[in-house]
Design a protein around this nucleic acid. Structure first.
Length: 781
DNA sequence: CAGTGAGCGAGCTTCCGCTTGACTT
């Protein structure tokens, strides 16, 4: 330490990730100091009013607590440095971090910016020779993205609080994600199951050849692809019904098949591209059944062990060195012919991919089985290794034979055409290392001679039922978001996590994402009141405008004022849209769902979101929210209301289900006694409550009166509790339980008791102390 | 389809994107 401070000043290189520091230090040698910014160390504060919308959208970045320590550390380093070299990632956010480093460090030494896409000696040294300055247009675009997300989230979320319930959030990424889950659920509800039949004929030859009936009198037999979600069959295909199929199969058993055509075509499959974050999350899920958060954690662990490259990327491209190493591995295993003449290049699918990083690949391609890994880590490493090496191998090639066979039945009289197909692999190529779960194992089929006739050893009717569109899983939702260019690799797993806080749930041991009733209600509200904001193209259009800022054809103020205040074309501006919604949207006029009609009274049965749903414990951040005591989603029929759990599937919300709930007698149940008086529980018009003698006490909403026990009720009976008299004023001090929780009262003056305080332990002294504090005012001005 | 307890007081929530935090000998 002392030796270093004494040495002559050296350039200070700042990168984003501490994981990079050692590698880059090694490349640059003793002449440089390398330190990390730990990502974004500063941000605009997460509270109201952080952006001055009246004054050209100005805002101030403030370091986080951890960020301030980073800045202090970097400032100390800079004091001994000869120059400052900003080597943050080569994307929009990296440029912003570089800019903020300059802002907060206020360097007096020369500053330059370098960019490298992979950490190889060649690239890093080349970058050092190519010094640049910070691109202010890129910084402006990054700032615009950040401000727009803030304006969206921090203006729309409060509308949810006033129209649906508190603690809910809306945002550019999470709201379209929620929309996907809810719309998929509705597609499943609207889905019409269709039963269709097929006929399979087994030829009486030694090899197992099964031919499938394709047309009857030139009319195609409907396959699942021909039937849509409403059960409509696309012409000219027609459904083959069971009775007809059985009759036809019986007639076919008496016939033979004549080969009408035998066609041989080349078969060829390219390897999959190297892994991006979403590809790997998808593969980890489909092979290991590990959800996105755990999967991302495993990827991060492998990266921290130095085994794989950076695990949050949207680029499938490999560095030249990595491509050469992958090819070499393939050649060592399978010989020189298993790789093409030239390395295979891969490019990002999405236009807005920012290519700050390579694909996810082994750091050291010749390391086949690293030691000391958990089973899951080893499995993920193996996937990464296989897919990377396979991506540089030759195509899988072979031949596909398609045989067409004819049959004529006498009674009923029909002309039937069958086909059979098979593929013979000649060159396995990349398949030797990696094949996708979606790829079926090819089955070989020999060529046939036209005119040959085959008897049939079996003719079977296969009955199939169409399946509704599958629910999203973590991985498939991430893939769908990525396809719409919504969200970034560093946020894919966190997005799912935050949806799970309020808006989606899964059954035990399953990953399928099911919207909560809250989620359905919020989506319903957003799609009604803010259709533009939940449009899947919103992010893409934002990205296009950000590009025009980078190109110098637009500015932050232009873009944000169009979004926020002035409007643009059809869009009247966020302020105006929110004003309209606040004024005209009456929650009472909007049902989440119409379940049906009461069979006797004819009254509609509807689902309501509840004014304020029962709060759930959240693990977002480090604090957990206090549980709330009022409201829950409920079914309404005439004047009757019945609560429903938030994790009820929409498909369960039938008229029968509703009637069953509505008809459940609300008889009082005796749970025990308190001070010699009988305690009963009951559900009334205001929710569940307990009755002790003449006194009634509300139970927290969501309480199940069938299972609630005295242990749950006893603590509630302790309120109100006299704490004593304030010696200073002679006023009574009382501890009470109200709508918002526990509070103390003295002469009409109240203070809430903090949620982390045990009410049983509250004393007069404690209460007076609370009352002595100033009453909190709401927000600022 | 009818009928069912009482009724004191707030402040706060929220966005998306970068990146790892670590008690000792």
């Amino acid at each position: 330490m002392n030796k270093r401070t004494a040495s002559s000043p050296r350039p200070l290189v700042i990168v984003e990730s501490p994981n990079k520091v050692a590698t880059i230090s090694k490349i640059l040698g003793d002449g440089f100091t390398v330190k990390a910014s730990y990502g974004h160390f500063a941000d605009i504060p997460a509270k109201r009013g952080s952006i001055d919308t009246a004054n050209n959208f100005t805002a101030t970045y403030v370091p986080s607590k951890k960020g301030q320590e980073v800045i202090d550390m970097l400032r100390d380093e800079l004091a001994q440095a000869s120059e400052l070299i900003l080597a943050t990632d080569g994307d929009r956010e990296g440029e912003m971090i570089a800019f903020l480093l300059v802002e907060f460090l206020q360097p007096t030494v020369p500053v330059s910016r370098i960019v490298f896409n992979s950490i190889s000696r060649l690239e890093v040294l080349a970058a050092l020779e190519d010094r640049k300055q910070i691109r202010s247009s890129l910084v402006e675009a990054a700032r615009t993205r950040r401000y727009l997300d803030y304006l969206y989230g921090f203006n729309v979320s409060p509308v949810l609080w006033s129209k649906v319930r508190g603690n809910l959030g809306a945002g550019r990424v999470q709201s379209p994600a929620l929309r996907m889950v809810v719309e998929r659920e509705k597609e499943r509800l609207a889905f019409v199951e269709t039963t269709y039949c097929g006929i399979e004929a087994t030829l009486s030859i030694e090899a197992q050849v099964v031919a499938t009936l394709r047309t009857i009198d030139s009319v195609p037999v409907a396959k699942s692809d021909d039937i849509d979600d409403a059960g409509i069959v696309a012409p000219p295909a027609q459904l083959l019904l069971l009775a007809d199929a059985q009759q036809l199969a019986a007639a076919l058993r008496a016939t033979s098949l004549t080969v009408a055509d035998s066609k041989t075509e080349g078969y060829s499959r390219k390897p999959r591209r190297p892994y991006t974050t979403s590809d790997l999350l998808q593969d980890i899920y489909s092979r290991l059944k590990v959800g996105s958060t755990a999967a991302q954690a495993i990827m991060n662990q492998l990266h921290e062990k130095g085994l794989i490259s950076y695990p949050r990327t949207d680029s499938p491209s490999l560095s030249g060195v990595a491509m050469a190493a992958a090819r070499q591995q393939a050649v060592e295993l399978f010989g020189a012919s298993c790789v093409p003449d030239k390395p295979r290049l891969y490019f990002p699918k999405r236009k807005s991919a920012q290519e700050a990083h390579e694909a996810i690949r082994p750091s050291n391609m010749s390391l086949r089985h690293p030691k000391g890994l958990s089973t899951q880590q080893a499995a993920v490493y193996d996937l990464v290794w296989r897919r990377t090496v396979a991506s540089q191998m030759v195509d899988t090639t072979g031949t596909t034979v398609t045989v067409t066979l004819h049959a004529n039945t006498i009674n009923p009289e029909h002309w039937c055409v069958f086909t059979a197909a098979g593929t013979t692999i000649v060159e396995p190529g990349h398949r030797r290392l990696y094949s996708s779960v979606e790829d079926d194992e090819p089955t070989p089929l020999a060529e046939f001679t036209v005119g040959d006739v085959f008897g049939l050893s079996a003719v079977e009717v296969k009955e199939h039922v169409t399946r509704p569109p599958a629910r999203y899983t973590d991985a498939s939702l991430i893939r769908a978001l990525e396809a719409q260019e919504i969200g970034r690799p560093s946020t894919y797993a966190p997005i799912i996590q935050s949806l799970r806080d309020e808006y989606v749930w899964s059954k035990r041991g399953d990953q399928a994402l099911i919207p909560t009733l809250t989620g359905v209600a919020v989506h319903q509200f957003l799609s009604t009141c803010f259709p533009t904001l939940v449009d899947y193209t919103f992010t893409r259009e934002m990205e296009e405008e950000l590009d025009s800022i980078v190109d110098g054809n637009s500015t932050l103020v232009d873009m944000l004022s169009k979004f926020y205040s002035l409007g643009d074309g059809e869009w009247p501006g966020l302020v105006s849209v929110i004003d309209d919604v606040e004024k005209s949207y009456k929650p009472a006029d909007h049902d989440v769902l119409t379940i049906g009609v009461h069979p006797e009274t004819g009254e509609p049965i509807v689902l309501k979101p509840g004014r304020s749903f029962a709060g759930k414990k959240s693990v977002r951040g480090t604090r957990s929210r206090p549980s709330r005591t009022s409201g829950s989603p409920y079914i309404k029929c005439g004047s009757r209301n019945v609560a429903v759990p938030d994790n009820t599937e929409l498909s369960q919300l039938t008229v029968d289900f509703a009637l069953q709930l509505l008809n459940t007698p609300t008889e009082a149940r005796v749970v025990g006694e308190h001070n010699g008086e009988e305690v009963t529980v009951k559900v009334g018009p205001y929710g569940p409550y307990a009755k002790v003698g003449a006194r009634s006490v509300s139970l927290p909403s969501g309480t199940d009166v069938a299972t609630v026990s005295m242990a749950d009720i006893e603590p509630l009976l302790a309120f109100p509790r006299a704490l004593g008299v304030d010696p200073a004023s002679d006023d009574e001090v009382v501890l009470k339980r109200g709508r918002y929780g526990i509070y103390v009262e003295k002469a009409g003056d109240t203070r809430p008791v903090p949620a982390d305080t045990d009410p049983a332990g509250v004393t007069l002294e404690h209460a007076l102390e609370l009352l002595a504090r100033p009453k909190k005012g709401r927000g600022k001005r």
